[in-house]
Amino acid sequence: MSCSVRDAAELESRGVPTVVYANDVFRPIAYGTAEILGFSRAYVDENVVFFAHPTSNLTRSHVFGLVDDAIETVERALLGTRDVVAPNVARSTDTVDLTEIGELLEPLRASLREDGATLALDDVRAGVVHARLEVDEAACADGTCVLPRRNLVALLEAALRARYDGMHVELDDSRERSLAGT
């Protein structure tokens, strides 16, 4: 998902209005990527058309039906006339549950696994999520196939803030431990 938003940013910078189709589980990643790239969250609300996840197991005719239902929204997004109701889901960090955070971040964690890294969530207290990133040296010897630490933290925090007010992330990054040990 982050790559699709990056593609949109590249095309927008070349003067090409771009709309992205994505599954709704990727909304937090879309927000996070947009913020890293310098877009506002409103860009996602206005230019990403979300479908209920998953779409991969649907029949072709079912997918066609999804597009039929969405095409007017798509057209308005392309023309910049979409009526946007931004989801208002941010809430206090007082009632945060680590399982819920895991579910929220699962699409991002899955992307990291594809790149050879594991993001473990250890704890959440006082509005801070404590996480560990383990990069598999066999799959990614120099660690560069995973986002740099600061970008990853920014992405995680932006994703979390789509649901929780003022959430922070403390990330223990195995790449930094490797550097410290050399």
């Binding site: 699709s4 095309l11 070349r14 209005p17 709309v19 992205v20 189709y21």
Partner: peptide
């Protein structure tokens, strides 16, 4: 795609 008037990028899954 740079010459297009607009683009739609579809992320399946």
């Amino acid at each position: 795609l740079a010459h297009c008037a607009a683009v739609i990028a579809a992320h399946g899954g």
